[in-house]
Structures are given as structure tokens and as C-alpha cells.
Amino acid sequence: MPTIARPDFAGRVAVVTGGNRGIGLETARLLARGGARLSLWARDTLRLEAAATELADMTEVHIVQADVGDEQAVQAAARAAIDHFGQVDILVNNAGTLGPRAPVGTYLASDFEAVLRINLMGTFHCCSALVPHMSARGYGRIVNVASVAGKDGNPFVSGYAASKAAQIALTKSLGKEVATTGVLVNAVTPSASPTDIFGELDEDRKRALLANVPMARFVAPEEVAQMIGWLCSEACSFSTGATFDISGGRATF
């Protein structure tokens, strides 16, 4: 990958949900290299502890075992992060789930709701917990990790696609809502990346995932993190409520 200028996050505190693996962990690494202190929220305590151990060589790391789909757990995590650091400046809503693969008609309503609970309600809960704090301080950067599936859909994962489309809509609405407060809210829409969310991929599944990607490859988590990093930085100063595509040409809107 080409050498890219490192954003300066000195003095900033960042919350990264799902920051213990995949795109979330790569984003946490980038933020740490830039000088941010980190609060990582996730359900898997062992992976949280492993991520914290790795990142502790670069910055101060605070971890919270939390399910973002649980409003009370998120409110408690936000209080814990603010109590620990005294502030939160950056929120990366990365925690997510793919859910089952099934056609509508056999896709269970309970499974559909479970995906919305994490991907959409989780983002809403985290924003609800931290936006008032950021607005009161007059500064904030929020990045919602959506998906190209939220733009043009994917077959057999209707819950995931619907949740990501709603996440994009929430980004647009909230970005306009807080536009004069110093808090900027944006989304990124990656195409498929080789992370745990997809599990083990056989060759047929890989071909299906890449069939609509003109660049004919997966996007690396590091590439997505670079885009997120700019959106988390002070260099991003006049973009809010926007959706930033990183899909290798699959979506051009």
C-alpha cells in the first residue's frame, strides 16, 4: 500500500465499537498511531483484552465489554469512557453482524430483528449516548461503518442490507441535526472485506462477492481504516451527513 500521511489525533479520545477485530481493530491501530487514546467496546472480552495488549504499546487503552444492541449497556459504556478519560471526541460505529443467508419467505423475522438490533439500533444507541456530550463540548467526529449493500442490496441478506441502508439514512439525518454544533457525522460503505463477519469463504462465495466489484478484489481493512481516519480528523471540516464509498467501483453514487 502507498505511504499515506498520518492524521494527528493528539489529545483526542476515540470510542471504537467492535474495535477488537477486523476493520474496527485496524481503525483503532490508525487512531493510536496518530496519538488518540482509545475506548474499545465489544462483546468478546478475550479479543478485547488481546487488542488492548497490542495497542497499549502505542497509547492508553480502555476497554468495555458491551453489547451495542443493549441501550443500558451502551449508556453505561459511555459513562465509563467519559469518567475514565474526561472526554470523548471520536465515535466509530463499527460493531455489526451479517446475520443469516436466506430468501425472504424463510428468513425468520426474529433473525431480521436481531440484525437490526446490532447494526441499526446499536449505532443509534451509541450516538444517543455520546452526541449530547460531544455537542456540549463543541467538537466531535462520528463515522458509521455501513456497507455498499445498504446502497444497492445483496440477495439473501435482506436484514443486513436493510440495516445498512437505515444506518446511512440515520447518518444523513443526524449529520444535518447537529451540523452547527461542531459534530460531524459521516458514513463509509465498503464492499466485501476479508474479515470475520463473512466466516470461511470458499471459491464460489468469493466469486459471488467479487462479481460486481470492477476492481476485482476485496477491500483491505487497512484501506477502510484510512478513509475512516480522515473522517475522524480535523482535516475533515466541511463534510457531514455524507456517505463515502469504498467499493472498488461497485457503487458510484
Rank of each mutant, 00 (worst) to 15 (best):
N20G: 14
E222Q: 12
N93R: 09
N20L: 05
D83L: 10
T53E: 12
S247Y: 06
Y107G: 01
D44Q: 11
I23H: 06
V74D: 09
V88E: 04
V16G: 11
V224C: 05
H133R: 09
A211K: 06
L40S: 08
A166D: 11
T171H: 07
A56K: 13
A242C: 10
R217I: 09
G86W: 02
D70W: 03
L130C: 05
A161P: 09
T171N: 05
S158A: 14
R207G: 15
E60M: 01
V213A: 05
M227W: 00
L209S: 07
A28Q: 00
A251H: 13
G34I: 03
V183L: 05
V219R: 07
G69W: 10
A52K: 07
Y139C: 03
T97R: 13
F253H: 11
R33G: 13
S110W: 07
R33C: 01
A52N: 04
L174S: 01
N154A: 14
L116C: 05
I82K: 07
A242H: 11
E71G: 00
A251R: 14
I118A: 12
A211Y: 02
A187I: 09
M215G: 00
G11R: 06
S233C: 10
S110K: 14
V104T: 12
M215L: 15
Q167T: 15
P103N: 04
N93Q: 00
V74Y: 02
A42E: 06
S193Q: 03
I63L: 09
S237R: 14
S158P: 05
T243R: 01
P7G: 10
R21W: 04
I82H: 12
G248I: 08
V15R: 01
H133T: 12
T123I: 08
A76R: 13
A216G: 06
L25Q: 01
N212A: 13
M58W: 13
L55D: 01
A208I: 02
C126R: 03
C126Q: 10
P214H: 07
K151T: 08
N94H: 05
R47I: 00
T59P: 01
C236L: 04
A51F: 11
G96M: 04
E26K: 07
H62G: 00
